[in-house]
Amino acid sequence: MRGNTAILFVLPVWSLLMREILRFLRQRNRIIGALGTPLLFWVVLGAGFGDLQLFFPGALLMVVLFTAIFASISIIEDRNEGFLQGVLVAPVSRLAIVLGKVLGGAILGCMQGVILLLLAPLSGTSYGPVEFIAAVGVIFLIAMALSALGFLFAWRMDSVQGFHAVMNLLLFPMWMLSGAFFPASGASTAIQLLMTVNPLSYGLGALRRVLYGEAMADSLGDPSLLSSLGVTVGFAVLTMAVAVWMAGRPEKN
């Protein structure tokens, strides 16, 4: 009976996750958009400042941000088109629904991140297999957190337009103030404070420490590896928990 219960939980998660990935692969413009924008940023900023390496982790973070968020906000579409209603009347727990959707977004974000990671040597960044695996792990954690963040904002929304405000007023500033755009070391005190409370700073810090080693990250004023990983895991757990809680609340009217 226990095995049966596990299957009844895992299968729906698998169903929603695979659907997310298939949908993504069938919409070519989404792949191009999610990968193209950060690539453009990276090349333009990197070339402008003459340092492709410096902006690489930031571009990586942006790929993950875009892909994960756009995947999980498709819950708005799912709701409007009726797909979600079909899922909600199936004997599936809300935890499984959130997990399937968020994991789907996280895996997509992670896949795009890995593609960009494979391009990194072009900028002169070199890494060994250990660094690569560590970086993928960090990317996955960030992707989980962002995907869950997208989900909890999108759950109650009835239009994708409403989400653009969240994108512009919250998510994009989070990216800008993560150290992706400029390092904390040279910023004013107020900005430094914002960067300290921004969970994405720690995700970026972890990426830089994993890819570039301690010395470079220290010189840019990034948080330590332990606090970077700790906050990133905490961020992912917290956003997941809130997403599950939101989805579990009874719907009004």
Binding site: I7, P12, S15, R23, R26, E81, G86
Partner: peptide, 18 residues
């Protein structure tokens, strides 16, 4: 799901019901 085939729609529905 518009982007999925008829069969995929059915299969994913089946998973939801275990």
């Amino acid at each position: 799901d518009k982007k999925l085939s008829v069969e995929e729609n059915m299969r994913f529905q089946g998973y939801l019901f275990g």
